Simulated scan of single mutants.
Amino acid sequence: MRIAEALRDGTARLAAAGIDSAVSDARILLMAALGCDRTGLLSRAAEALPDAAAARYAGFLARRAAHEPVSRILGHREFWSLDFALGPATLDPRPDSETLVEAALAACPDRPLRVLDLGTGTGCLLLAVLHDRPAAFGLGVDRSEAAAATARANARALGLADRAAFLVGDWATALDARFDLVLSNPPYIPEAEIAALDPEVRDHDPHLALSGGADGLDAYRALAAALPGLLAPGGTAVVELGIGQAADVAALFRAAGLDIAATPHDLAGIPRCLVAKKEFGPASECR
């Protein structure tokens, strides 16, 4: 079979399995099987598909047809133009979460910063901020040792290991420090809604990173209780939001004594994160 034919057949197979992104997914998986980029794929279209690559491609297609995400199949995901390894214990970073990084960078100028990432997973939020803020140092905390290990590996691969540390812990428990910036993409899906999620999410992202309890707000309650003690005076917290949660989370944070500075929207116009501040006198930015 020629490479062009393999791409056509793979696209048809994924489309028949109900994969909306069949064209792009088949192309990405074939490039991975061949070990080439898109230019290489186009230039080799008339060549025969090597047997080893054909076997790899068939395995990739079977997994994608079963609704395993491409990023899980390949073991990595691009986020903030950086490459992050994934693991079974980590959430698959989504483009929507880049809204949180944008908000954090906008709130905090490039100066020495102490950054905390609660529920760090792959470390993508913390490491994206550290990449763009070379004077910053950060700590990522996750309940999962496997997730923390993945984040450490990502920090090493990105050349950020000297400015990032990762610990295993239950949110902020046992942390006795103050931070200029606190980041979090907490679990926020109401438990009863998880069964109806797309299989790419429901069957492949860790349940611990999805379930926000009965109303989806359990993690936000924990954050609201912890943030006043974690933030330095004038510090900023930026947390991701689920759809329709902005008002409830803002109320929880205000009740904890925090000021709500903004609720930035994602590219779809949905309030995607909340920016809260711990004020001290006239302070209005991270210190």
Rank of each mutant, 00 (worst) to 15 (best):
T90M: 06
C108W: 06
R254Y: 04
D248K: 14
L139D: 05
P134D: 01
R72P: 05
G235I: 13
W171I: 12
T11E: 14
G119W: 00
A16F: 00
R152K: 12
L258G: 10
T11G: 01
L105A: 12
R163K: 10
P271A: 15
P112G: 06
G216C: 08
A17W: 13
P95I: 13
F280W: 03
A16V: 01
N154L: 14
D142A: 10
L181K: 04
D205Y: 07
A52W: 00
A62T: 13
A52E: 15
F179R: 03
L86W: 04
L116N: 04
G216T: 01
V101C: 03
P199V: 13
L227A: 06
A4S: 14
L7P: 00
E98P: 05
E47Q: 13
L34Y: 00
L227C: 09
G216P: 04
A261T: 06
T173F: 00
A15W: 06
Y188A: 13
T39I: 14
L217P: 02
E200W: 01
E191D: 14
G169L: 11
A251L: 13
L125Y: 05
A106Q: 10
P50Q: 09
A85R: 15
R143I: 11
A232E: 07
A174Y: 00
R2S: 13
W171F: 06
R143C: 05
G75D: 06
S71C: 14
R156N: 02
L126T: 09
G121N: 10
P206L: 08
H76G: 03
V249N: 05
A155C: 09
R114Q: 14
C273K: 12
L208N: 01
S71N: 05
P69Y: 08
A225M: 01
D110K: 10
T173S: 09
E279L: 10
D176T: 13
A66T: 05
A195R: 15
P95H: 08
R27P: 02
L158D: 10
L61A: 07
G229C: 12
V129K: 05
A214L: 06
P187F: 09
R64F: 11
C108A: 14
K277V: 14
T263A: 15
L118H: 08
A255W: 02
A54I: 08
F79I: 00
G159P: 06
E5R: 13
L49G: 02
